[in-house]
């Protein structure tokens, strides 16, 4: 627990302006990510679950700099990513790599596999073609591709094989953190199992940390050490994956889990599933963001809810902000904290 965090995200906020006024000036904003704190330690996996539109993809894209953050900090290995410039920024960036959902569109169809895998090294420069090829062969072997695959092009591979290529490319720069954006949702379950096994093996061998986005709760429970549940750009509940997903505390997490298809329970009745649509994120609700859809809403829910630790260690211990997200279990709901639910 005392190891220094690998990734520290503090108060990260992303707003997208909506042009509409004179000369395309923004009249309002989409509040995609609202003050998110999270921490990942080396070798650890954090899962992020939530409905589409909850901001989970925007969050990880802001972390690796694919979208512009509005405020907040991303610190990796003690270095502020957004403050860094030039060469140093590129070096920090290479410690984080991403694997996208759809290997069909994330691999350039015109490049052979060995070029695809070593593209990040090629961009970094300083390696000869022979050295790149040799490195490609090593990487391909570590993800279970055969040497004869190196000269083929992506269209010659199945979805699972393509995702192996994407993983090989992501680990080519020896990153410390891999971001996985729904890495298996385009794959069949039998192939999903192969990719998940591969990722777990790489984590054991290379000590990688993972930040995985998924809507598949049973996969997150299997794959991740900790989980954060997002709703309307906020983390509403976080903690050890098995604990949170087996005994959710926040009313939203409960509704979400009740609707997950499972062999274990029958289809929920309509009353349990009527959660309505995600509210508009142009005008953020006052008080608790979930209040309007919550069946436990009561007095006090009109106050803004902080993410507070609960359970055995709950109390008045004041912690410095970087430790906030590392708390064992936290929930953004005063009724759950009071044990009313």
């Amino acid at each position: 627990m005392t190891t220094a965090p690998l990734l520290n995200v503090e108060d990260l906020t992303v707003n997208f302006p909506i042009p509409g006024g004179w000369f395309g000036r923004a009249t309002s904003h989409v509040h995609a990510v609202n003050k998110v704190d999270l921490t990942i330690r080396p070798g650890e996996s954090l899962g992020i679950v939530g409905e589409s539109g909850c901001g989970k993809s925007t969050l990880v894209q802001a972390i690796i700099g694919l979208v512009e953050r509005s405020s907040g900090k991303v610190v990796i290995d003690g270095q502020d990513f957004h403050e860094a410039r030039g060469r140093r920024k590129r070096e920090i960036r290479q410690q984080m790599q991403i694997v996208f959902q759809d290997p069909q569109s994330s691999l350039d169809p015109r490049l052979p596999v060995w070029r695809l895998i070593t593209e990040p090294l090629h961009v970094r420069g300083g390696m000869s073609k022979a050295a790149l090829r040799a490195r490609a062969a090593e990487l391909a072997a570590s993800v279970g591709l055969r040497p004869e695959h190196l000269d083929r092009r992506p269209y010659e591979f199945s979805g699972g094989q393509r995702q192996r290529i994407a993983v090989a490319r992501a680990i080519s720069t020896d990153p410390d953190l891999l971001i996985l954006d729904e890495p298996t949702s385009a794959l069949d379950v039998s192939v999903q199992a192969q990719i998940i096994n591969l990722l777990l093996k790489l984590q054991r061998e290379l000590g990688l940390a993972y930040l995985m986005i998924s809507h598949d709760v049973s996969l997150v429970r299997h794959f991740c050490d900790r989980v954060a549940v997002m709703y309307l750009g906020q983390i509403v509940e976080a903690g050890p994956a098995v604990q949170v997903l087996d005994s959710p505390a926040h009313p939203y997490t409960r509704t979400l889990l009740a609707t997950v298809p499972s062999l274990k329970h029958p289809l929920p009745e309509l009353a349990a599933t009527r959660v309505g649509e995600l509210p508009n994120n142009r005008i953020l609700p006052t008080g608790c963001y979930y209040r309007d859809r919550c069946s436990f809403a009561a007095a006090g829910c009109d106050r803004l809810q902080p993410l507070v630790e609960f359970g055995d260690r709950a109390g008045t211990v004041s912690m410095s902000p970087p430790d906030k997200a590392a708390w064992p279990r936290s929930v953004r709901c005063h009724r759950a904290q009071a044990g009313d639910i």
Binding site: S190, N197, F223
Partner: peptide, 23 residues
């Protein structure tokens, strides 16, 4: 049987999932 064994719902967290070999 193999299809059901692939599901992560059924195994210990982080344990190896049973994949179906071949294509």
């Amino acid at each position: 049987q193999a299809l059901l064994r692939c599901l992560p719902e059924r195994v210990e967290p982080k344990a190896e999932l049973e994949a179906i070999p071949g294509t």
